[in-house]
Nucleic acid binder design. Structure first.
Length: 749
DNA sequence: ACCGTCGCCATTTTT
DNA sequence: TGGCGACGGT
């Protein structure tokens, strides 16, 4: 165990703790992943624990993969036999084995948020409730919170029977669960809850997993909810070998039902708990830690903790207030370019963090304009595209014919003459008989009132049955091709012959390559595991760290990551902290923790930026500087004074109209920027020698060359104003979205 | 049955 | 801004 030597005293204690509950309070950057991986290695190497007797839970699949590979490095290939996964993946794996005991079919599917909404709307219709009074989103949220607390519909009803609204929510909840069951589907919350149900109702199943998982480790414990707590409690009940790692200051998922008390009350829940605090930070400079500490100290009721480091003081936090969000983006680009040009950093050393995904658009535009490579995490657009969702609906229906939500999505896509009235009729009769729509169609003669559409239904049913019949012999990618062919989906797009349709075809092709990729990585890649993967894998899991590009993501996604330089954008009251956190102290504290997470992602440098005037969701606001910036002591921040001066001068400019943003107006407002900043013209028309490309020549399939990204092929063209938005697949850097005017493209053929 | 248009709406974070 | 439902014309 020579690797123990490199650890500090506290870390060693945590790693070498024997049996029994262990709570590790690990400050940001204190090496908790290291402690976890080493502890696993210690258990295997020194205590003779078998890897398959260990269950480690992480927050994302990416973290799981990483942890596993780090353990394998320490103890060798037998580490592969460990279960390292998220709560959801672990529970799905358990359910795949035994869910039939709960009356579900093993081919169950996972409903995502939009499936959930569809189902809620259906419930509302059936209960004659109005979407205005019961907005699906908020109803869904309330149901979700109930599920996090493991409150079932009946209990919910008795809890709120005196409240008219909540009483109705209870009945929606009840119907919603019933419908999920009929669809043979689980939503995200159900995944955990049904696993718990399985463990509690079937002692032999519980016994199996208790003896299988003799050591349980949970990362990011501050973000677990009550159901997840119950899950690990059950599994560890027989041996008490549960080790959790967390930081109450980094709890940022309260809105999703994460229960901070899981960590605060851990010692009470597990008597005899050994508590170890990791307070030495190895990641950041002293200034960054001071900044973080000054912010977080404004929160009440935390476990006491004082982070320290042996690193040097480093530079101050830099604050910059731009006149608007476009200039904010340009400031960021300018600072990044400067450091890259000096050769002290590469693009991938930078991360831009923001509160809302909506903020990324302006940043993207700026980065495209100046040709700075970036990678966007989140905003999971790909799977949300219509054609992809349609295709997934086919796949899901073939896999699980009970899935009426998917069926309804594609029963008339492409159009086959099954209209609204027919669908409503089917829906009603299916609901009345409590069967799935597909099984109803199978017995088509028993449906009353079907006249014209009967043939069309027959036709639809035989297409699906035909595909079901071949799904076993085909690989998923081949099945997709069959679907596109047999349903006429592809043909319809081809006949349309528009730019948009071509783009959709490209997307479908890309989806096929996703499937092929999946088949390559997984030996036993059947349809079920493919669908499961699509449901549970998030965007951050596929974050490619090799690529040299600036990373954009939300503060939430940044959890657990670190970067040399971090930009925190949109540091304004109303944006961060967000306006709806103002009303409640608890929510404000969560925003503050989020800020703390943001600051502590940085190793060497933190920038905070904001805009004097910001247009968001179509309306323009003038926000004050974020209170989080003001919570920093002056000596730790650079730029506060100048920001105030700027603001004063901007105010006077406003009245003269000189403040309006234009492409080359950042000269006066940003003197420094006019020097190192590459002008957009350098890629476009101003390069005198280079003719601007004729926009009409840019079509899907055209091969082009970009100064920076090299050769690529256009995969999608979309009109935007008098410009074209291009998706281009580059050989070297992969997919990029560029504005034709600024991209400075050369057509090869 | 289908398609286009209008006007209303809220508007975070994600497994 | 843009997604969505309601409505009305073909």
């Amino acid at each position: 165990m020579n690797y123990i030597e490199a650890l500090n005293e506290q870390q060693k204690k945590a790693v070498m703790h024997g049996d029994g509950p262990l709570l590790i309070l690990a400050g940001a950057g204190s090496g908790k992943t290291r402690v976890l991986t080493h502890r696993i290695a210690y258990l295997v190497d020194d205590k003779g624990v078998k890897p398959w007797n260990i269950l480690a839970i992480t927050f994302t699949n990416k973290a799981a993969k990483e942890m596993k590979s780090r353990v394998v490095k320490l103890i060798g290939a037998e580490g592969e036999d460990m279960w390292v996964s998220t709560f959801h993946s672990a529970c799905v794996r358990i359910l795949r084995r035994d869910i039939d005991k709960l009356g579900y079919d093993k081919s169950f599917v996972i409903f995502d948020t939009s499936d959930q909404q569809t189902l809620i709307k259906e419930c509302l219709r059936e209960l004659n409730l109005n979407e205005k009074n019961f907005p699906p989103k908020s109803v869904l949220h309330q149901i979700g919170r109930a599920k996090d607390e493991m409150i079932d519909p009946q209990t919910y009803m008795t809890m709120y029977s005196t409240d008219f609204r909540l009483g109705k929510v209870a009945s929606i909840y009840e119907l919603y669960q019933k419908k999920l069951k009929i669809n043979n589907a689980l939503d995200f919350d159900d995944i955990i809850i049904k696993a718990i149900e399985l463990l509690t109702e079937f002692p032999e199943v519980l016994g199996y997993y208790q003896s299988r998982f003799r050591y349980i480790l949970v990362d990011e414990y501050q973000d677990t909810n009550s159901a997840q707590f119950t899950f690990v409690s059950l599994l560890s009940a027989s041996h008490g070998n549960i080790c959790v790692v967390g930081d109450d200051d980094q709890g940022i998922y309260g809105w999703r039902g994460a229960n901070i008390r899981n960590i605060l009350d851990f010692e009470r829940e597990f008597p005899g708990t050994k508590v170890i605090k990791l307070e030495q930070n190895y990641r950041s400079t002293q200034n960054i830690l001071d900044a973080a500490n000054h912010v977080i100290r404004n929160n009440a009721g935390r476990k006491s903790k004082k982070l320290w480091t042996e690193n040097g003081p480093g530079t101050s936090v830099r604050y910059f207030c731009a006149s608007n969000e476009h200039e904010e983006a340009e400031y960021i680009i300018y600072e990044i370019n400067k450091q890259v040009k000096e050769g002290i950093r590469k693009h991938s050393d930078f991360a831009i963090l923001y509160r809302m995904n909506a903020q990324s658009r302006v940043l993207e535009e700026g980065f495209m304009k100046f040709g700075v490579p970036y990678k966007l995490v989140g905003a999971q657009k790909f799977y949300d595209r219509k054609e992809i969702r349609d295709l997934l609906a086919y796949l899901r229906l073939i896999h699980n014919p009970s899935d009426s939500v998917s069926l309804r999505r594609i029963i008339n896509v492409p159009r086959r003459g099954i209209g609204k009235t027919t669908i409503e009729l089917l829906e009603q009769q299916a609901a009345a008989r409590e069967v799935s729509i597909f099984s109803l169609i199978q017995a088509i003669d028993s449906i009353q009132g079907i006249s014209r559409a009967a043939g069309a239904l027959q036709n639809f049913s035989s297409i699906i049955c035909g595909l079901k019949a071949v799904k076993e012999q085909l690989k998923v990618s081949e099945l997709i091709e069959e679907i596109l062919k047999r349903t006429g989906y592809l043909k319809e797009l081809e006949d349309e012959d528009t730019i948009e349709a071509l783009g959709r075809i490209e997307n479908l092709k890309e989806f096929i390559s996703v499937a092929i990729e999946f088949e390559r990585e997984n030996e036993d890649a059947d349809l079920g595991s493919f669908l499961e993967n699509v449901s549970l894998v998030s965007d951050i899991d596929t974050l490619d760290e090799e690529k040299d590009a600036v990373v954009f993501m939300t503060f939430h996604s940044a959890k657990g990551l670190e970067f040399p330089v971090v930009f925190m954008a949109g540091m304004e009251e109303g944006v961060f902290p967000g306006y709806r956190s103002f009303s409640e102290e608890g929510e404000l504290e969560e925003e503050r923790r989020l800020c703390y997470v943001g600051i502590t992602r940085a190793r060497e440098q933190v920038y905070m930026t904001g805009a004097y005037c910001r247009t968001l969701f179509g309306s323009t606001t003038y926000n004050n500087v974020s209170r989080f910036v003001k919570e920093l002591p002056e000596e730790l921040v650079d730029g506060l004074e100048t920001a105030k001066d700027r603001r004063d001068s901007l105010l006077s400019w406003d009245s003269t109209g000189r403040n309006s943003y234009s492409r080359d107006s950042y000269g006066p407002t940003m003197p420094a920027a006019s020097r190192g900043m590459p002008k957009p013209q350098s890629y476009g028309e101003a390069g005198a020698s280079q003719e601007p490309v004729e926009l009409s020549n840019l079509k899907t399939g055209v091969l082009v060359e970009h100064k920076k990204f090299g050769v690529g092929v256009i995969t999608r063209v979309e009109e935007e104003g008098d410009d074209l938005k291009l998706d281009i697949a580059f050989k070297s850097v992969g997919n990029k979205r560029l504005m034709a005017q600024y991209a400075g493209l050369r057509i090869i053929r």
